[in-house]
Structure formats: structure tokens, C-alpha cells
């Protein structure tokens, strides 16, 4: 589905990603965890084409995508739900969702797209109540739901989620991870999840990569990483023992 080989990302003088390789197989939920500034977001932005890598390759469905502009990667089935939600605050909730299906409108009828909207509403019933409201007036948690819903509108083959828990209250975070697990259960979408909350992410993921200073420090089965003391060390600066 998605593969990254020896990716190096730099902007300005910062080398944010220093040679990362990873793979997301069909139907898999892969987590990338790591502290702030470890290069997670830069990696994702490079995968969806918002920044160009200094070196290395990005493959989407086995196609080398380095030269493909970001908006065309969306047509290849890649949906990216960006950090800090980035909903279109001045447009309605419904319009935000429809924009998520922008590339589908070229081939499919609007009625199909409205069907998907209804599906999203069953996942996030709160959005249905507020569909005509300006998105900027939603609470943080609702905005995050909208951002995920908007990404799902594409019916993506691969879904990238960048820190869905950021700035949310613990109860809402629980809800968010339930939704992620449910998407995973459908088996139609593979997910690349970036999280700061390592243990939460590891609990839902199949496999995971631990990023530190732009490098993969650990990788493997998520359940195994969950009990690996090195993960905690990477976060809290305590020596592993």
C-alpha cells in the first residue's frame, strides 16, 4: 500500500528525518510513535507530498510517487488527516465533508457522495446534528472528528492520521481511539497513525515504529513494544533496565 525507503527530509538547516524506511501493508494499522521533534510530522508531510524529500523514495501502491504533486496523490487513494485538524473553519460541517470527497466528484454522482456523508454521520452522530454549523464553531473534539470524517470521505485505501489526540480531553481521546479501532475492523483501509501518546497508539496498532531524532530507534509488533522498557526510556529519559 504504502512504502518509504531511506527517506531524508530537510528544510532550512534542519534535517528532520534522517533516513527512515517503513511499510504499511493492506488492512494494517501501523503506528509511529516518538516525542515532539522526532520527525513524525515531517515524515507524514513528505509521504503526502507537501514537502519534497532530500533523498529516498515514497511508493504509493507500488508506484514511485516522489514527483507526483500532493493533490494527485489523493486520487491514488491516500487521505491525510493533518496535525492540528486543519478543518476549513469558515465552511459548514457538511461542506467540509464534501470537500473531503473532492476527487470523487469527478467520477461519481453527488448522490453517491451524500451516501458516504450519511455513513460518516453514523460513525460520528454529533456531526449530523451540527452539519449546517460553521466548522470553526465546533469544539476541539468535534473538530477532530470532522477532520477524520473528512479524510474518510475519500474512501481511502490508506489513511494517515497525524496526532488525533492532540489537545483533547482524556474522555474524548478514548472516543477517538474507539473510532480508529472501528475503522481498522472494516479491513478496507490501512492506517498510518502518528501519536505522542505511545501506549494508546500501541494498544490499537498491529505494528509500530519508534522514531527518535529522525531515525527509527525501534520497530516491531505493537504488543511486544508495549512491554519494551526502551519505549518508556525514549519518552521519559529514564535509563532502560
Amino acid at each position: 500500500m504504502l512504502e518509504v525507503k531511506n527517506l531524508v527530509v530537510a528544510y532550512g538547516g534542519i534535517v528532520a528525518v534522517r533516513g527512515v524506511s517503513l511499510i504499511v501493508n493492506p488492512g494494517e494499522l501501523v503506528a509511529i510513535i516518538g516525542a515532539n521533534g522526532s520527525g513524525k510530522t515531517s515524515l507524514l508531510r513528505c509521504i503526502s507530498g507537501l514537502i519534497t524529500p532530500r533523498s529516498g523514495e515514497v511508493y504509493i501502491n507500488q508506484t514511485l510517487a516522489n514527483e507526483i504533486p500532493s493533490h494527485k496523490r489523493v486520487s491514488m487513494g491516500l487521505a491525510h488527516c493533518p496535525e492540528a485538524r486543519k478543518i476549513f473553519a469558515q465552511q459548514s460541517v457538511l461542506d467540509n465533508l464534501i470537500l473531503g470527497a473532492f476527487v470523487r466528484t469527478k467520477k461519481e454522482k453527488m448522490s453517491k457522495i451524500h451516501e458516504t456523508v450519511e455513513e460518516i454521520f453514523t460513525i460520528f452522530p454529533k456531526l449530523k446534528e451540527r452539519q449546517l454549523q460553521q466548522a470553526g464553531t465546533l469544539s476541539g473534539g468535534e473538530q477532530q472528528m470532522l477532520a477524520i470524517g473528512r479524510a474518510l470521505m475519500l474512501k481511502p485505501q490508506t489513511l494517515i492520521l497525524d496526532e488525533p489526540s492532540m489537545g483533547l480531553a482524556p474522555v474524548i481521546i478514548d472516543e477517538m481511539f474507539n473510532v480508529i479501532e472501528n475503522i481498522k475492523k472494516t479491513k478496507t483501509t490501512s492506517i498510518l497513525l502518528v501519536e505522542q501518546l505511545a501506549y494508546r497508539a500501541l494498544k490499537v496498532a498491529d505494528r509500530a515504529y519508534v522514531l527518535e531524532q529522525g531515525l527509527v530507534r525501534l520497530e516491531g509488533n505493537a504488543k511486544e513494544l508495549l512491554i519494551n522498557p526502551e519505549v518508556k526510556a525514549a519518552y521519559l529519559g529514564v535509563n532502560a533496565h
Binding site: L50, H71, P82, K86, F88, Q91, L99, F102, V103
Partner: peptide, 18 residues
């Protein structure tokens, strides 16, 4: 709507495939 999306946030608009 795509025009409005671009005027609000170019980067996110391109993540929608615009």
C-alpha cells in the same frame, strides 16, 4: 467550495486533492 478551501488553507486544500 474548492476555491474557498484554497483561500482558507492552501496546504490542506491540496490534501483534499484540490
Amino acid at each position: 467550495k474548492a476555491i474557498q478551501a484554497v483561500s482558507e488553507d492552501k496546504e490542506t486544500a491540496s490534501l483534499m486533492g484540490i
